[in-house]
């Protein structure tokens, strides 16, 4: 079979899901946001819930997430996405509601909203992108910045004595009775991307059961903020982020 005959509709094995729009993503080259977006969009696509899904975008790099997800979306104030999602879910309990938030949004300015939405067991999906830095504002320290990690507001590295410790908010919310499924994934290799999608799909399926909050952390790179090439940043993430933020399920529904 010649190559020309391979590219036919019946041989198509992978293309961008239509739940993502055709807009060019504004993210930096190699940034994990795009892949995380796409996995969530694919999960929505495969479950056939595009018309029943309402998303909430945060403030931060993914502030424009609503340009890329072809679902109804609301843009929340910084950190308030879980409260906005609560408002949506309480008046439209049959819809699938998700928030998509970065580490500054979710684990610093919005900690109260995160903890309390999880503690109430709001039937929403919280997608948490943790790259340990404030990307949009130019690489400042995040609540999840690792000890010793340099940023523009920790230029000599994060000193935990004066700047606090990197916050494992995912382990924290897993302690709350309101959360039903809590997991930490990544999107830097094909295998990890597939696992992330599986987790997101599962989380959306669980939402139908009204069992509580599903929380999916994606440890991601920030090549620009970390001042590395995308490939270097993925390696650095494996060597430095994963030991502190180990991948895997943290809380799974009891059988």
């Amino acid at each position: 079979m010649s190559e020309n005959t391979i590219k036919t509709p019946e041989n198509l094995v992978y293309e961008k899901t239509s739940v993502m729009t055709d807009r060019v993503l504004h993210y930096c080259p190699g940034c994990g946001h795009g892949t995380a977006h796409r996995m969530l969009a694919e999960a929505i696509d495969e479950l056939g819930i595009q018309g029943d899904t309402i998303g909430v975008a945060p403030v931060g790099c993914s502030v424009l997430a609503y340009y890329y997800f072809d679902v109804d979306m609301q843009e929340a104030a910084h950190g308030r996405a879980p409260a906005v999602a609560t408002g949506i879910k309480r008046v439209l309990p049959e819809k699938y509601v998700f928030t998509y938030q970065g580490d500054g949004d979710l684990a610093a300015i919005g900690t109260a909203e995160t903890i309390h939405a999880c503690n109430r067991g709001e039937n929403i999906l919280v997608v948490f992108i943790n790259n340990g830095i404030y990307g949009m504002t130019g690489g400042q320290m995040a609540p999840t910045t690792l000890e010793g990690m340099k940023s523009s507001t920790s230029p000599r590295g994060r000193d935990v004595k004066t700047m606090g410790n990197p916050l494992k908010i995912t382990e924290l919310v897993a302690q709350l009775p309101g959360t039903y499924f809590v997991t930490r994934q990544s999107v830097h290799t094909p295998a990890n991307v597939r696992k992330t999608k599986k987790a997101l799909k599962k989380a959306l399926e669980y939402q139908k059961l009204n069992k509580g909050t599903c929380f999916v952390e994606v440890v991601a790179n920030c090549p620009s903020g970390w001042k590395m090439t995308p490939v270097q940043s993925n390696k650095w993430m494996e060597e430095n982020m994963f030991p502190y933020y180990p991948l895997g399920d943290i809380k799974v529904p009891e059988k």
Binding site: I54, V56, Q74, A76, A77, R80, A83, V84, A85, T86, G87, I88, R90, V91, L92, A112, E113, I115, H116
Partner: peptide
């Protein structure tokens, strides 16, 4: 009608935002 005691006034007004964005009387 749904009634919820939020964790703060900040959360409450953002819940209002979310529900109002769905076209509801909040």
């Amino acid at each position: 009608m749904q009634v919820l005691q939020a964790e703060s006034e900040i959360a409450a007004i953002n819940m209002v935002y979310g529900a109002a964005g769905c076209g509801k009387r909040v």
